[in-house]
C-alpha cells in the first residue's frame, strides 16, 4: 500500500491536482473521498473529470441532492456519488451503484465510509483536510 501526500493552496491548485490523477485512477476504480464539509471534495472531482475529458470543471457540481452525477468521456465515465443523504443499506441498494461499475468507469464516492462494503471494496482512498483558509492536505492511498 502506498500513500502520497500533497498540499494545495487554492481551489485552482486542488483542481490541477485532480487533473494529474488520470494515470493513478485508471479504470475500473472505486474511490472513496473523505473530508468534512467544505474540505474540497467536489473541487477535486472537477479536476478528475477534466483529467478523463469527461466534463469541464465549470460543469461539475455537488451531487448531494441529486445523489449521482455522471460525466461521460470518450474512454472513461466518471461517476460522482454523494451518500450524505443516504443512511440505510436499503436506500443504498436502490441507487443501483453496482450497475455503474464497469471496465471503463471511475466511481468517486463521498461519505462512502458510512457503509462497510465500500471500505472493503475501495481501490483508492483520498482524504482531504482543511489546514488553513485555502490550504488543503490531500492524502491519496492505493491498495
Amino acid at each position: 500500500m502506498n500513500t502520497r501526500e500533497f498540499t494545495t493552496h487554492s481551489a485552482e491548485e486542488t483542481i490541477a491536482l485532480g487533473r494529474s490523477l488520470a494515470d493513478l485512477l485508471r479504470p475500473p476504480k472505486l474511490v472513496l473521498l473523505r473530508g468534512e464539509l467544505g474540505a474540497g471534495k467536489t473541487t477535486l472531482v472537477k479536476g478528475i473529470a477534466e483529467a478523463f475529458h469527461a466534463a469541464s470543471e465549470e460543469d461539475v457540481t455537488s451531487p448531494t441532492f441529486t445523489l449521482v452525477h455522471e460525466y461521460r468521456g470518450p474512454e472513461v465515465n466518471v461517476f460522482h456519488i454523494d451518500l450524505y443523504r443516504i443512511d440505510t443499506p436499503r436506500e443504498l441498494e436502490t441507487l443501483g451503484l453496482d450497475d455503474l461499475l464497469s471496465g471503463n468507469s471511475v466511481l468517486l464516492i463521498e461519505w462512502g465510509d458510512k457503509f462497510a462494503r465500500f471500505e472493503r471494496e475501495r481501490d483508492v482512498e483520498i482524504v482531504l483536510e482543511r489546514v488553513g483558509e485555502n490550504e488543503r492536505r490531500i492524502r491519496i492511498s492505493g491498495r
Partner: peptide
Amino acid sequence: GHTRDDAAGEAFDKVAKL
C-alpha cells in the same frame, strides 16, 4: 448561468444541518 458547486437549496440544507 448555473452553480459551479453547491445548489442554493443545498447550502440552506447543509447550514441547517450543521
